[in-house]
């Protein structure tokens, strides 16, 4: 099973995380479990590196965070999508659709690339 390249994971991290948070608020560990499940293990990276990505999104104002205490007594930082984030997700969707259309077009002309 081929794993996705670092660059591709980096580029797709914003729309993936925003889409997960659009469903409901979540914390780092849960987001990673979600991504793993969705990708069938094709996306793999140091789990700790998701936090800088989350904080970057927070600084840009796409998500908001608050600390809560879990049942186990553990402190957890929960992330929520903001209105700005929803707008950003819309643009991301359009962008990825454009890329998708371009690639499908090319591969239709020359279908034996794989």
């Amino acid at each position: 099973m081929e794993k996705l390249s670092k660059e591709l994971i980096g580029a797709s991290s914003t729309p993936i995380i925003l889409s997960i948070l659009k469903k409901n608020e979540s914390y780092g560990y849960e987001i990673i479990q979600n991504i793993k499940e969705l990708s069938g293990g094709k996306i793999e990276f140091g789990e700790g590196t998701i936090y800088p990505v989350l904080h970057k999104l927070e600084k840009k104002g796409f998500i908001e965070s608050s600390w809560k205490i879990a049942e186990s007594g553990r402190k957890r930082k929960y992330y929520n999508i903001s209105e700005n984030g929803k707008k950003e997700l819309k643009t991301e969707k359009q962008n990825w659709n454009i890329i998708n259309q371009i690639i499908t077009k090319i591969w239709k002309i020359e279908p034996n690339l794989i």
Binding site: F45, G46, E47, G48, T49, Y51, P52, V53, H55, K56, K59
Partner: peptide, 17 residues
């Protein structure tokens, strides 16, 4: 190991912090 190498984590955090 799953969390990742401390160097990698610090490098990523350094970009935003």
């Amino acid at each position: 190991k799953r969390i990742g190498k401390t160097e990698d984590i610090c490098l990523e955090f350094d970009k935003i912090n």
